[in-house]
Design a protein around this nucleic acid. Structure first.
Lengths: 160, 160
DNA sequence: TGCTATTATCTCGACATCAAACTATTTAAC
DNA sequence: GTTAAATAGTTTGATGTCGAGATAATAGCA
């Protein structure tokens, strides 16, 4: 077996892993998030109120990191949640650059209404895998996800 | 161990699997697709020309299934690729409802230019996992992704 | 044949998203 | 202490995306 074939095999394996990963994430996301429309929430909006509920008040920037969205976008997501009265904005007194987002009573009530259904959907979406397989998948994804920060891309860059 | 605890454990496992899966997909996608900007392509546009290159001409609907986008959106993606001369549109003579999208010579040349870098990025993104781990991940994702079509959600639906 | 349902695509309006420019505030350097 | 650099958010403009409705073509059936 020559190096050419080995390279092709390496490539096939990574490409196959990537497409399967992307599709699994897409498909499970569709299964899980489909019902949010019934509550008039976007996936981002839900992500925000869920993060606030489980982790407590956060600044706009921290929320952006949690749900992987740009700060500009976070401003709009927060705007829309404030309009619906689900969260409140308050500028921090100790650092007046920061704006703290906090779940309102209405937001808390809404999340408590949605959460059981949401969790049930996640469980249903993952039910095709055994408990052990779910653990394996999580471990592999964790390893892969965390490592992206340190992946070396020099060889993959287009020529300047 | 009571059923309540078992239920909580089941839920924790699924929720953890889901967040890890979503983050791994997001993070690898960022690593891999980052360079498309250099070519003035969106992820969807790249998905289209890659599908056309590797699988041959397709209708708008088929492309939408491949890259998981709505038909309305596919029309715009195709529009923009046509504008750049990377693909051509042609109505099928045997079924005049269908529009066939075909890669132009320029589109083919562009994909051939990008592809090696793209593949190298996928390989780099997956390099934190061993060959065996990559195969495991792909198998688990495949099983999970394919099963979504038949997941039962009755128990998870909100009350009407 | 003609009527109806289905299918494939496009159009349109609403909205999410990003990147870049901008403002306000805080921190660091000198 | 005053000025420069860094940081947090917001604003703006362009674009991608979806969903619902419109249009056109086909298929099924009486």
């Amino acid at each position: 077996m020559g190096t050419h074939y080995r390279g092709a095999e390496t490539e096939r394996r990574a490409l196959d892993g990537y497409i399967k990963l992307a599709r699994a994430a897409e498909a499970t996301g569709a299964t899980i998030n489909d019902h949010l429309r019934d509550y008039g929430l976007t996936v981002s909006q839900f992500g925000v109120i869920e993060a606030l509920y489980h982790l407590g008040p956060m600044t706009v920037g921290e929320l952006g990191e949690k749900i992987l969205k740009s700060s500009g976008n976070m401003t709009l997501v927060a705007d829309n949640l404030v309009k619906r009265g689900l969260v409140t904005r308050r500028r921090r007194s100790d650092d007046r650059r920061c704006v703290e987002i906090r779940l309102s009573a209405a937001g808390e009530a809404l999340l408590e209404q949605i959460w059981p259904h949401h969790a049930a959907r996640v469980v249903a979406a993952f039910s095709p895998l055994s408990a052990e397989e779910q653990e394996q998948l999580a471990a592999l994804c964790r390893k892969l996800g965390l490592a992206q920060a340190t992946v070396a891309l020099e060889a993959a860059d287009a020529p300047a």
